[in-house]
């Protein structure tokens, strides 16, 4: 195994990734005043979250049914403003239990 090449590759990946994250953080300290740009940046997190969650949540566990049940549980609890950890762990438990039930029925 050519460790020199591998380590150089890892170093370049890490350096580039860090620079991308660091440049706006260090060099862009001014508050943005333009309402369109400001609104755009305010909406970005919600757009990012939506895009990351759907449709991936349905395929994240061992079956779409388990993913779907987890999604339903998360939506319901989030609608009633339960905390992040509660919603997250309940969805995980729902996916796990659903999968166990499915396995039991199939067997």
């Amino acid at each position: 195994m050519d460790y020199t090449r591998i380590l150089i590759s890892i170093f370049i990946m890490a350096a580039l990734t860090y620079i991308i994250r660091m440049v706006p953080m260090v060099f862009f300290k001014k508050k943005i005043k333009n309402i369109y740009i400001k609104s755009f940046l305010d909406y970005v997190p919600y757009a990012v979250l939506g895009a990351m969650t759907f449709p991936e949540i349905l395929y994240s566990t061992s079956s779409m049914i388990a993913g779907g049940i987890a999604l339903a549980v998360a939506l319901l609890l989030a609608f009633f403003k339960k905390g992040l950890l509660t919603v997250s762990l309940s969805a995980t438990a729902a996916a796990y239990i659903t999968q166990k039930v499915i396995d039991y029925i199939i067997k």
Partner: peptide
């Protein structure tokens, strides 16, 4: 692996 998506939804 569903934990993280549950958090996003919250």
């Amino acid at each position: 692996s569903v934990a993280i998506y549950g958090m996003f939804i919250a």
